[in-house]
Amino acid sequence: MSRIESTTLRDSFSVSFTVGAYGTAFGAAAVANGFSVLQSCLLSLLTFSGASQFAVIGVLGAGGGAISGIATASLLGIRNGLYGVIMAPRLKVKGFKRIVAAQITIDESTAVALGQEIRGEKAMRQGFWLTGFGVFIFWNLFTLAGALGAQAMGDIRVWGLDSAVPAAFLGLVWPRLKTNRDRILAITCVVFALAMTPILPAGLPIIATAFIAVAVGLRV
């Protein structure tokens, strides 16, 4: 194996395993928020996008309806579409392969692929496929483990799972807070969501913050 390939393999595997292991937190959180083990596993297999999956279980767990949950998750899934726009001309695949490529187009596969691009087009493509499939396999295995574990626990508060979910959201948003504008937006949305919670039906205070984001984005 050439040096280029082993670098790509190492990058892909380390990302796949560490990110996949977060699947445990998702599986456990999904069951803690009222989803069945089967539903938790289907979300990981079919939705296959961490932030969207956490969002839908978060909204329903807070008492929100299916529509609010789907809408919140879908707004978070838009960025995968943008990754698809970036990756399609680089992968140059059609038909069934394009369907498979679309399903594994997520933060990690796109990031590793673009990171390998300096090593050439072949390494870039290998990075995409290896990371996409790698995260898919580990994410789903760890989701099942987390869901079964949480199911065996009973009262989730005894195990602190009711705090694991917001901590996971915090861990997802933290690296995105790069500028003061980002931080001000985050604090504004926290205050807004809490202020609206007693007034609006569950789920709506969360999704309504997307409009704040759009308003801020349009001023750029």
Binding site: F54, T72, L75, L76, F169, L170, C189, G217
Partner: peptide, 20 residues
């Protein structure tokens, strides 16, 4: 810009609602 800001808004709101 909007694509960068929407996840920040939704995830922050989720942290707040799930905690408080």
């Amino acid at each position: 810009a909007i694509n960068t800001l929407i996840p920040i808004a939704l995830l922050s709101a989720l942290v707040a609602v799930q905690t408080f």
